[in-house]
């Protein structure tokens, strides 16, 4: 859908999906963990779409449209267009369910939901041996289309004795190790 006339009929649905955070299908609460492949919209982007939808959904000036190259670039590496991580396990992946205490150091590159009940919500945190608590991932109203990797902006070094907690017993999450250079 690249044309205004195709988009206009969807203006209300777009607003509602964006405000409910079902679209884009990212699935994590923004600001709880910091991800390099973050696909969630910013508050400004959400407000812009909302204002556009509620304000008559005007057509913009064609000269301001992004080029086709730019649109192709935007869709190329999105979380929903090919990042299928669960078939691409790395050596050293850990599958965690319930609270899990690391017996040796682990450099955490990301997390991937493996089995999460529909509509489930929970916060995953790392409790360090020195008492620090690091927010890792907050899944909210989980949907199967959120089954993609969540890759941290920078790998997190977890010493032995760190507890990963917050994952309900009925769910499992894959801890992805950083790839050694």
């Amino acid at each position: 859908m690249t044309e205004y006339r195709d988009t206009f009929p969807w203006r209300t649905a777009i607003k509602e999906e964006v405000l409910e955070r079902r679209m884009p299908p990212w699935g994590a609460v923004k600001g709880f963990g910091d991800f390099r492949n973050d696909q969630a919209l910013t508050p400004e982007q959400i407000e812009l779409i909302t204002s556009w939808s509620q304000g008559g959904s005007p057509e913009g000036d064609a000269k301001d449209l992004a080029s086709k190259d730019k649109l192709d670039e935007m869709t190329k590496e999105s979380a929903w267009s090919g990042a299928a991580p669960l078939e691409d396990h790395r050596t050293g992946d850990l599958v965690v369910s319930g609270d899990f205490k690391l017996t040796k150091p682990f450099v955490l590159d990301g997390l991937a939901p493996r089995s999460v009940p529909e509509d489930d919500s929970f916060q995953i945190i790392a409790e360090f041996p020195d008492g620090r608590v690091e927010p890792l991932l907050w899944l909210e109203g989980y949907k199967k289309q959120f089954t993609h990797v969540f890759l941290f902006r920078a790998p997190i070094e977890l010493p032995a004795g760190t507890t990963i907690s917050g994952i309900p017993a009925g769910s499992s999450i894959v801890l992805l190790p950083a790839i050694k250079e």
């Binding site: 777009i14 556009w52 005007p58 992004a66």
Partner: peptide, 18 residues
């Protein structure tokens, strides 16, 4: 999803205002 992102791109570039 592509519908959304394309719509968003168009909106961000072309319609800054209600």
């Amino acid at each position: 999803a592509i519908l959304l992102i394309l719509a968003l791109a168009a909106l961000l570039a072309a319609a800054q205002t209600p």
